[in-house]
């Protein structure tokens, strides 16, 4: 463990810096090369070709929130299942049944949400 893991993360850290620097430098260079002629009409935000009306606010539907919540729940569920999956080859049948119960409970939740119409877009 020890140093190998830290070395791996060091590489990832360096790679992140490079991956962020390359586009940033390119955009900077392009900024130098491109013309800069701002005027109020060009800078106005786009609204189907008409003048902007009102501040930029949006009233979201609760549907988005439900999708995000469902995603959160299944995300946490998957994260709890990953260690089990890693140990899977060495586990007895009891452990596998446990995970099946875990999954089944959440499948039940999914079907409940489905029946209640929480998963419809409109």
């Amino acid at each position: 463990m020890g140093h190998e893991m830290l070395n791996a993360w060091l590489y990832i850290g360096l790679f992140t810096l490079v991956a962020a620097a390359l586009p940033a430098i390119a955009i900077f260079l392009a900024g130098l090369l491109s013309p800069r002629k701002p005027n109020p009409i060009k800078d106005a935000t786009y609204e189907c070709g008409v003048e902007t009306v009102g501040p930029a606010w949006t009233q979201l539907r609760v549907q988005y929130y439900l999708f995000a919540l469902a995603f959160l729940i299944f995300d946490v569920e998957s994260v709890l299942l990953f260690p089990w999956a890693v140990a899977y080859q060495q586990l007895p049948l009891f452990a596998i049944v446990e995970a099946i119960i875990f999954l089944a409970i959440l499948v039940g939740g999914l079907f409940y949400a489905w029946r209640k119409g929480a998963l419809n877009w409109q």
Binding site: A19, L22, A24, I27, A30, P38
Partner: peptide, 26 residues
């Protein structure tokens, strides 16, 4: 595309606006 103008919309939040494409590629 390197030579096209970088138009920043009026009232845009500068840091998120400029960070977004860099973060997307990164």
């Amino acid at each position: 595309i390197f030579t096209k103008e970088h138009i920043t919309p009026a009232g845009a939040d500068r840091v998120p606006f400029n960070l977004a494409p860099v973060l997307s590629v990164a």
